[in-house]
Amino acid sequence: MQEADLPRRLARGDARALAELYDRFAPGVFSLALRRLEDAGAAEEVVQDVFFKIWHGRALFDATRGDLPAWIFAIARNTVYDQLRRRLRQSRLSEAQAAMLDLFATSGFEALEHLMAQEHIAELLAALTPEQRDLVRLVCVDGRTVAEAASLLSTPLGTAKSRLRAALARLRQTLATEVRAQ
């Protein structure tokens, strides 16, 4: 795949470019949607919506404003939280999801989104210890519970929790340092 060429091919309406984007990003979009919506059917609907927007909105993508992964991440995240808003209207939202939505509405997350390209996440993870990285992968990436991850790694639950907490704090700190450096 000629990655640098993808935006141009997408803009041209090359459906193969969409297929390549799908193969690369659909798992991530699905994973993000599943994590927040906790419903595989709803997550598939998000995947569908996101790629519909990418395809029909391709004229809106402007490479000078950011890279393709960040654009897709923004669309995916917005679509997921839009689903949550609809659930709120239909009163099908759990308390935790409502709180999440409330915060999404009030925060200024956009300033960070360009840091969220997939390659960048790999760099962030590389800064963790191997034990922390295993936990973050299992819980934050694979979507397992902390208890499941602790069991898989043969680690006491309390240790896993504190290790994960330290790992997230480290990731957060790295992120903050990078934002300050910009």
Binding site: A26, V29, S31, R35, F109, L112, L115, M116, I121, L168
Partner: peptide, 25 residues
Amino acid sequence: VETSRLLLDALAFSAAAPAPRPALR
């Protein structure tokens, strides 16, 4: 909290997760 959620969303987005059903593709 929202920044943390962004971080967690990005981690999920970066997942080498299983693809959705082939029929969806």
